[in-house]
């Protein structure tokens, strides 16, 4: 339930700019190799004209890896957010609309995931499933839906109580029909805002998992760059170029999504003020 309050659209523009920058990085990563400096035979080479951001512990060009990392972070961010938002929306709508025992049961499950310490559980899950791209997505999706579910539920509950839905029920419309045709479109605003915020969280979570070595080695991400910098002596080498850029990328890409999500949430809030506070 992050209440970020009113945000001017200028902030949203900043968010859009940051996200566009990340997408630009992803596009650039598809350029043929060698555009950004070749791998060197010397590890931990400082930034120079041939390697713009220097080289890492195995002589790879940091810039090239950084661009490639944007693919992983972005795709895991989007996929993880999709899975978690989908989960959260379905559970939220269902719980809010059905009410009663269903609501109670789903509420308990939601509580469980809200209360259980996410990071240790994530580590256990990631270690259990093993590191692979889809598993990282699943771990993030599985643990990041409860807040969405809660918000969607509250909204669905409200809509359920409105005279319009009561009327439809009275006419004898079937519940799944009402849920899909009338409840879902009305929670759309909040779902979208949650999705954008979830992308940002997923990017951070993926980075965290990769940082402690639970990432997918097939798809090196920014978090993994930090992992190898931390475990292969980049600090003692003073090789800041191996860990400052990926950290900036993680922060700014997640910031971009947060800013947009904040804007969307506040706009949504002001548009629904008349109905009452949704939290």
């Amino acid at each position: 339930m992050k209440r970020f309050g009113y945000s001017p659209t200028g902030v949203e523009w900043a968010g859009i700019a940051l996200i566009l920058a990340v997408f630009a990085m992803t596009l650039m990563s598809f350029l043929p190799g060698g555009c950004f400096g070749m791998p060197s035979s010397i590890p931990y080479l400082p930034p120079s004209s041939s390697n713009f951001l220097g080289t890492n512990d195995i002589g790879d060009d940091v810039l090239a890896i950084l661009l490639q990392g944007s693919r992983v972070s972005l795709s895991i961010g989007l996929l993880g957010a999709t899975v978690s938002t989908l989960f959260g929306t379905v559970i939220g709508v269902f719980a809010g609309f059905m009410g009663g025992t269903v609501d109670e049961a789903l509420g308990s499950i939601t509580d469980f995931f809200l209360v259980v310490p996410a990071l240790p559980l994530m580590i256990l899950l990631a270690a259990y499933l093993g590191p692979s791209f889809m598993n990282v997505v699943m771990v993030i999706g599985l643990l990041w839906w409860p807040t969405t579910a809660r918000m969607v539920r509250a909204r669905a509950r409200q809509i359920r109580g409105s005279p319009f839905i009561e009327g439809l029920m009275g006419v004898g419309a079937r519940k799944p029909y009402i849920m899909f045709r009338h409840v879902l479109p009305n929670v759309w605003g909040i779902v979208l805002a949650r999705f954008v915020l979830a992308v940002s969280s997923s990017i951070l979570l993926e980075a965290g998992l990769s940082f402690i070595g639970l990432g997918d080695p097939q798809n090196p991400s920014w978090g993994m760059m930090l992992h190898f910098a931390m475990t292969r002596g980049a600090l003692l080498h003073g090789a800041w170029w191996t860990f400052v850029p990926p950290g900036i990328c993680i922060s700014f890409s997640s910031l971009g999504f947060i800013l947009i999500g904040m804007g969307m949430e506040s706009r949504y809030r002001s548009s629904t003020k008349s109905i009452g506070d949704v939290s």
């Binding site: 951070l204 940082f211 400052v244 950290g247 922060s251 947060i258």
Partner: peptide, 15 residues
């Protein structure tokens, strides 16, 4: 504040 909150803590630690 929002920007600082999106910094990974362990990265802050490394810096």
């Amino acid at each position: 504040c929002v920007a600082v909150h999106s910094f990974p803590t362990y990265w802050l630690a490394m810096l």
